[in-house]
Computed example of a mutant assay.
Amino acid sequence: MIPYGKQDISQADIDAVVDVLKSDYLTQGPKGPLFEESLIKYTGAQHALVVNSATSALHIACLALGLGKGDWLWTSPITFVASANCGLYCGASVDFVDIDKNTYNMSVAALKAKLEKAKVQGNLPKVVVPVHLCGQPCDMKAIHELSREYGFSIIEDASHAIGGKFFEEPVGNCRYSDITVFSFHPVKIVTTAEGGAALTNSDELADKMALYRSHGVTRSPELMTEEPHGVWYYQQVELGFNYRMTELQAALGVSQMQRLDSFVARRHQLSKRYDTLLAGLPLLLPHQLEKSYSGLHLYVIRLKLDQIELPHKEVFSRLRGRGIGVNLHYIPVHTQPYYKNMGFQYGDYPEAEKYYAEAISLPMFHLMSEAQQGEVVAALTDVLGGIK
């Protein structure tokens, strides 16, 4: 089976992890800060906090922004559930903004219309979470302008987008957001096995996220309510969590970051080749905005079902049957049973639902060979052979 995504682990990566296993620190040692420094250097953000998952990063980002009961978080319905769940973890309410039919990211037009209506109703969001689907950045400049007009904070869910650029600047620099979140899951562009990071240019937000990451505990005298009892002394000043990243993960991340640009460049090579090889088939190929450079975590096609004899599900199943590990990113969050129990229903976000009915993620990973890509194209061509 050719997987839809796969990590690329080099001998240097292995050696970096083995060195940690032989060291004095398996957690809370020097590698975490070193990984954070590599993210700061790459993106230009002022602060980076590495954590055990992007979900944890989203959670502490929401907490740092003061999201809580009575507040609203808005995000895209085409994302993994964590982009919405982070609001629920804080006791807030969650709503969605439909996607753009070309980019599959949050529609700026739909966001603007929803904000205008929410202002009249008195339920504007406190936090908006645009998701850089497949690695292509959202129109962050336009979303940022709306945030200044309507007073909401922005968390960029850039789980797919490390290595990408917006207006020639790195995703993660937080020029148009309060906080940016990365994921380092094995199928992502850079991996730490499990892991994530939250980046910000705010000293205050960085300090708050650092507390939430590690039990709400501090050793900083300026944050304490009394003089330290001794060098051993610490205080819990917030209700925090154990969201720390281990030294093993951080060491792997430091090593992986050295190849980030080559990883993304290889994905662009594969994407261009897919574009050429699939051009004659009844498909919509990925649309790339000129002002952005995608991290290309995913290569998503959409079936032109009116030109194909087979239904979407059958095309997917036949490709899997041919050893092609296709996937579907994502099931619209508002159609999940947990969210339907809140009152969401089919028909709420038509562009997202149409996307779901047509989308298939083709294999895309750094080590993918042209021969493997040829197998994917041949299988897809054969499955779609029956064209109306």
Rank of each mutant, 00 (worst) to 15 (best):
I40G: 13
G44M: 08
I78G: 02
L63K: 15
H144L: 00
F80D: 09
V51P: 11
N105D: 01
S147P: 15
A92Q: 02
D71Q: 07
D98C: 02
F80Y: 14
V131E: 01
K119V: 00
Y104V: 03
N85R: 13
S56Y: 11
A82R: 07
Y89A: 01
Y104W: 03
S107M: 03
A61C: 05
L133P: 00
L34K: 14
H160V: 02
V108P: 04
I60G: 12
K31P: 13
T27C: 14
E145D: 10
H59S: 13
L65C: 06
L26P: 11
S107C: 07
T43M: 10
G122W: 03
A61G: 15
N52G: 06
L73H: 04
V81N: 13
P30R: 15
S147M: 03
L65Y: 14
W72V: 13
Y42V: 06
L124C: 04
V97K: 09
I143R: 06
D157Y: 02
N85A: 08
F35Q: 08
L111N: 00
V51T: 15
T43I: 08
L39C: 10
E36G: 03
K31M: 14
E149K: 13
I99D: 00
K101D: 04
D100T: 01
T103D: 01
K69V: 13
S83G: 08
V120T: 14
M106S: 03
C62S: 11
P33V: 13
N105P: 01
T55I: 04
T79I: 02
L133V: 14
A54K: 08
